[in-house]
Design a binder for these strands. Structure first.
Lengths: 346, 346
DNA sequence: CTGAAAGCGCTTACAG
DNA sequence: CTGAAAGCGCTTACAG
């Protein structure tokens, strides 16, 4: 591949002048500029970003470590991050932690070794060594969606508290009293917050959230299935299940369907995170929608601020409830089917 | 950040010896090795991958340019690619072309500038200048899913021909005769092949595929919606619609629902690409499933072969039909008429 | 406006 | 087994 030296030779100029011409430096004659362009064209020259990075100590690359690419919420986040980054002249490298701290650390380390300019992360847990190390090492960093308490890094996330209250009001209005939650990992902020918000909202109606109605999931479909099976096996199963993310809702749907039960007749279902498919599931799923695009944008802006030495603002955006049919037909004041009794399993 | 020079100073050794120790070179004394480890530990040293790449002329990074990250098929492909690459000691940088040739070129160029070792691409069109340039420039490259005829690069893809035949047999068996397709862009191989396969399969039953029943989509949801509306506006609308990917099927579902029509009673629907949500849509969608994970793995292996100077094999894996309920109830021999019995099991 | 030179952090023949 | 030195492809003070 042609190097800047080849271009210099072809143009009959020094490497320094070619470099200046290439970078739009003002003090380059029109003539030199033209000769450089011609040489570049003739040789099909493309600057070597690796060499440039070594010299300038910046890669114009952002790292994004998310917990699960297969989760449409994170996919959309990643897309929005890439768009905003591109607009600002950055590339982004995505690392998929798959909800595993060890994999997360692997990606953080790899990214740091590649000298990315800044790191965007949605931590899988309360702080793996690699993560904490990165934060301490002073790499510009911002948390998106999830964060680690006590680590001094801007956080860009959405607050679902009000939406969860709306959801509980909705469920209560439909006559549901025994409400359960499929929680995310307690090691994550979102895992804890959604349970807390749910519990608080229930308390406002004098309702309890018994331990048996808190199922421990891991934000992935399989756990949603297992937890839901557990709920259905209870002597007194819940009337409504709130899945703390869309994948666990998918798992819940699997479990419910496998038992030959129907939503919302036999059991109501709601999910955190809204996705296009929820409009078309049987039945359409009531969900809490995050302003995902805005989150991605804000996160990149905060990170770029930090990279530039500016403070980098934390941002919290509200989530909102999207009512569909999976909790019962609105307006009836009661769950659709008169007797939400557990059916015998086929 | 500590550099190798700092480590050398700390260990009381030359930079050369430190480098050798770090890279597991055999001719390093046990003593030197220990001192290097201690110094690395003390300084929290991590090798600078940028510098190493400049020197060794390899980045241990693969580029993956896909047409749409938001498409679950490509997300799964990306995930599988990253897993296999990681197992082989490579990182991967994903570029999202969003079905836009210009964006695709942007990513190809950026990736090449970063001197990735090899490029995996699912071309958005028949060959944008950047793509063709990359292929000519001799960067190790392999096509996944889609390819460009005439470009001498290994192709890893799945063949849906047999599955499409099975689908048509299924539709025909259910009594459907007026079959339509929402096609992908004619500029893509998959866009063309799926139409061709569909037409051929119809021909085997003496059925035609009139132009009015070929809707031009772009593999994204919006186009599925528009095309389906067009179909429904026809004086004689089709009895069954085959969407050439899952996103266009989503759009079709949107359009059908917006008209207050029902699947499969009013119109049957099938899709290319199977995704977990298809089990839970209303009704569950009959789809053609690709061996996505295997495709990703095979693509990485072929690419790594090329990087190593080996030939790099093209691979074609069969897709298979997964029958669900969106084309009608099997066994009735007719599209499920007036009162389709609601099943509780998939 | 231009060029010679230093240097970014590594690796690797070459000598010893 | 170890070290001095060259060099990967750039950018950028420093001189002119």
């Amino acid at each position: 591949m042609a190097s800047i030296k080849d271009v210099a030779a072809e143009a009959g100029l020094s490497v320094a002048t070619v470099s200046r011409a290439l970078n739009g430096h003002p003090s380059v004659s029109e003539d030199a500029r033209r000769r450089v362009s011609a040489a570049v064209e003739a040789l099909g020259y493309r600057p070597n970003a690796v060499a440039r990075s070594l010299r300038t100590d910046e890669t114009r690359t952002l790292g994004l470590v998310i917990s699960d690419v297969m989760n449409p919420y994170f996919t959309e986040l990643a897309r929005s991050v890439e768009e905003e980054a591109r607009a600002l002249g950055y590339s982004v490298i995505i690392g998929n932690a798959d909800e595993r701290p060890d994999l997360q650390d692997h990606h953080v380390t790899t990214l740091l070794d590649r000298r990315i300019d800044g790191l965007l992360v949605s931590p899988t847990d309360g702080g793996s060594p690699g993560m904490l190390g990165a934060a301490r090492a002073g790499t510009p960093m911002v948390f998106v969606d999830r964060w680690i308490p006590g680590v001094d890094v801007p956080v860009v996330r959405s607050d679902g508290r009000a939406a969860v209250r709306d959801l509980v009001a909705h469920l209560h209005g439909l006559g549901h009293r025994r409400l359960a939650i499929i929680a995310g990992p307690a090691a994550t902020t979102t895992g804890r917050e959604r349970v807390d918000a749910f519990r608080e909202a229930l308390a406002a109606y004098g309702l309890e959230l018994p331990d048996a109605y808190i199922g421990q999931g891991d934000f992935q479909a399989g756990s949603g299935r297992r937890v839901t099976e557990g709920f259905l096996d209870l002597p007194v199963p819940p009337e409504a299940v709130f899945a703390a993310d869309n994948l666990m809702a998918l798992g819940a749907l699997d479990a419910i369907r496998a038992r030959g039960l129907r939503v919302p007749d036999d059991i109501a279902l709601a999910a955190f995170d809204d996705i296009p498919w929820f409009v078309h599931t049987d039945p359409p799923v009531t969900a809490i929608a995050q302003p995902t695009r805005d989150l991605g944008r804000a996160a990149v802006r905060a990170l770029v601020d930090r990279i530039a030495g500016r403070p980098g603002a934390s941002v919290t955006l509200p989530a909102r409830l999207v009512v569909r049919r999976s909790c019962g037909e609105p307006g009836t004041g009661r769950p659709p089917s008169p007797s939400p009794v557990r059916r015998s399993t086929p």
